[in-house]
Amino acid sequence: MGSATPLTLAEASDSDLLARHVAGDDHAFGELFRRHKDRMWAVALRTCRDPEIAADAVQDGFISAFRRAGSFRGESAVTTWLHRIIVNACLDRLRRIRPTTQLPEYDLSDPRDHHASTEVRLDIEEAMARLPDGQRAALVLVDMHGVPVAEAAAILGVAEGTIKSRCARGRAALAEHLGLRTTERTREPDAGPETS
């Protein structure tokens, strides 16, 4: 018997788990799913803006990853590969739906939730809903999840410059929408969006 014992599933790296799955380990992909399902769900929910569509996209994405695991070449992190699959599943679902879905309803009955912060959150969600899918996906990854531009570019399959451009345009559109909302409420015509 060799001195090195195989790593348990919990100790194995993501790429080891994927390799084990491809080699026929029935439990390896389950561990990969357990590790990353919450983050993938958060990305899907912010990209799709609808819990049912996001749930379907996450399911589609993980089924696709399960089936396509043998095509993973190790050129990026497993999480980057998973992000790409999940975001693409979201965008596919959104393209099929096209009539814009309503914003999800939230339970606003929590007494700790201040009216002003709830209003701002809903304003931001409404503004995000108006963005083109590509801009929204870039902003979700870069601004909301802190994914580096290079990794976001790999996830979405576009150049880094495209990610930067989509983020800049998306931020400008958000600022304009939120600025217009503020102007309407406060009736201050010279309160335009800030330039930074």
Rank of each mutant, 00 (worst) to 15 (best):
G2I: 15
S3R: 15
S3T: 15
A4M: 08
T5V: 14
T8E: 01
A10M: 13
A12C: 06
A12T: 01
D14K: 04
V22D: 03
V22C: 04
V22F: 01
G24D: 03
D25P: 00
H27L: 13
A28K: 00
G30H: 04
G30A: 07
L32M: 06
R35H: 08
K37D: 10
K37C: 12
D38S: 06
M40R: 11
V43M: 02
A44V: 01
L45G: 09
L45R: 11
E52Y: 13
I53R: 04
A54L: 04
A55C: 11
D56N: 10
D56F: 09
A57F: 09
V58H: 03
Q59T: 12
F66N: 09
F66P: 10
R67W: 12
R67V: 09
R68A: 13
S71F: 07
F72Y: 09
R73D: 15
G74C: 09
G74V: 08
G74D: 10
E75P: 06
S76R: 06
T79P: 05
W81H: 01
W81S: 00
H83M: 12
R84I: 01
I85A: 03
I85K: 02
I86W: 04
V87N: 00
N88A: 08
N88L: 07
N88H: 11
D92M: 08
R93W: 14
R95M: 05
R95E: 08
R96A: 15
I97E: 15
P99M: 07
T100P: 09
L103Q: 05
P104A: 08
P104I: 02
E105C: 08
E105G: 13
Y106I: 14
D107N: 11
P111C: 00
P111D: 00
D113Y: 14
H114F: 13
H115Y: 11
H115R: 14
H115I: 12
A116T: 15
S117L: 08
S117W: 10
T118K: 14
E119C: 12
V120K: 08
E125T: 06
E126T: 15
E126K: 15
E126V: 14
M128L: 09
A129H: 15
A129R: 13
R130Y: 13
L131Y: 07
D133W: 13
D133V: 14
G134M: 07
G134T: 06
Q135M: 04
R136K: 08
A137Q: 00
A137Y: 00
A138S: 03
L139A: 06
V140R: 01
L141K: 00
L141I: 01
V142G: 03
V142K: 05
D143C: 11
D143S: 11
D143V: 07
H145P: 05
H145G: 02
G146C: 10
G146W: 11
G146H: 12
P148Y: 04
V149D: 01
V149E: 01
V149Y: 06
A150D: 09
A152K: 09
V158A: 05
A159S: 11
T162D: 00
I163A: 05
K164F: 12
R166V: 02
C167M: 04
R171G: 07
R171W: 08
A173N: 07
A173M: 03
A173H: 02
L174D: 00
A175S: 11
H177E: 13
L178A: 05
E184K: 12
R185K: 03
R185H: 06
R185T: 07
T186P: 10
R187T: 12
P189L: 10
D190N: 13
P193S: 10
E194L: 13
S196R: 15
S196H: 15
S196T: 14
